[in-house]
């Protein structure tokens, strides 16, 4: 597996608060990488720097570098809009727009300049199929997305993210608001998607990381404590703090 994302000595500050400390990581392509750690450890913060969602929080300062596919994402070469098109994101709470199912999925492509009805229809169908939602909604695409169940809404949000043809998919505790069955569906979906996409997920659920991911990163207080293959990290952690965390002594 080739490294797609290179994070090099990244420091991030919210005002005076040092949220990420000297983080260096490489994230492999077409695999699932999980970020775990107790809340406030910086795992979500790091995830949100990958598509520069932190830009919008006033007082955020960043040092160091993040390169995706060799391109520095905080450089002038990269438009943040393009970056976010290439790096899709799914959030903790399903957040469909107050629009129809169709318009939700078509929202991104339309932003990026696709207007032809035929092309949009195609994109909507493939995206919904990729998100394993097509069969459930194909007969009422014009209905409000708010009529879907929580799990369906989250898969719709995944379809929405896929519709702009990203390379990377960020999942920020994407199952934490869902019931166990919906969670399972999303996890299966993630397994399927990793053949085509690079997935980075933040999870508060260690078992989920163990079940789903290929690589796991353990964060504590803004630092990367341990980073290795998921299997190794959970069976034979090399750092005492990791062991304490995964054995439930804190967090």
């Amino acid at each position: 597996m080739e490294a797609l994302i290179n994070i090099n000595k990244l420091n991030l500050f919210y005002g005076d608060f040092h949220a990420l400390k000297d983080v260096s990581l490489t994230i492999p392509e077409k695999a699932i990488t999980a970020f775990i750690g107790p809340s406030g450890c910086g795992k979500s913060t790091l995830l949100r720097t990958l598509n520069r969602m932190n830009d919008m929080i006033p007082g955020t300062r960043i040092e160091g570098g993040i390169a995706i596919g060799g391109t520095e994402i905080y450089s002038d070469e990269v438009d943040v809009e393009t970056l976010r098109k290439k790096v899709g994101m799914v959030f903790q709470q399903p957040n469909p727009f107050p629009k129809s199912i169709y318009d939700n999925v078509a929202y991104g492509p339309r932003l990026h300049g696709i207007t032809s009805k035929k092309e949009l229809d195609e994109i909507v169908e493939t995206s919904l199929k990729s998100a394993v939602l097509w069969d459930e909604v194909k007969d009422h695409l014009k209905r409000s997305a708010f009529g879907l169940s929580g799990g369906q809404q989250q898969r719709l949000c995944i379809a929405r993210a896929l519709a702009v043809n990203p390379n990377i998919l960020l999942m920020d505790e994407a199952t934490s608001a869902l019931d166990p069955i919906s969670t399972l569906k999303i996890e299966e979906l993630a397994q399927e998607l990793k053949d085509k996409y690079t997935i980075v997920m933040v999870t508060h659920n260690m078992h989920q990381a163990a079940r789903v991911s290929n690589q796991t990163v353990f964060f504590l207080n803004g630092e990367v404590i341990e980073y290795s293959d998921t299997e190794k990290l959970f069976s034979n952690p090399s750092d005492q703090r990791t062991e304490d965390y995964i054995s439930g002594r804190f967090g």
Binding site: G69, G70, T71, D79, E81, T82, L83, K86, L111
Partner: peptide, 17 residues
């Protein structure tokens, strides 16, 4: 591999304007 190769910078510049 540069994933930003196909970026439509012109379209984005227009939207930013």
């Amino acid at each position: 591999m540069n994933i930003f190769q196909d970026a439509n910078r012109k379209q984005i510049a227009g939207r930013r304007r």
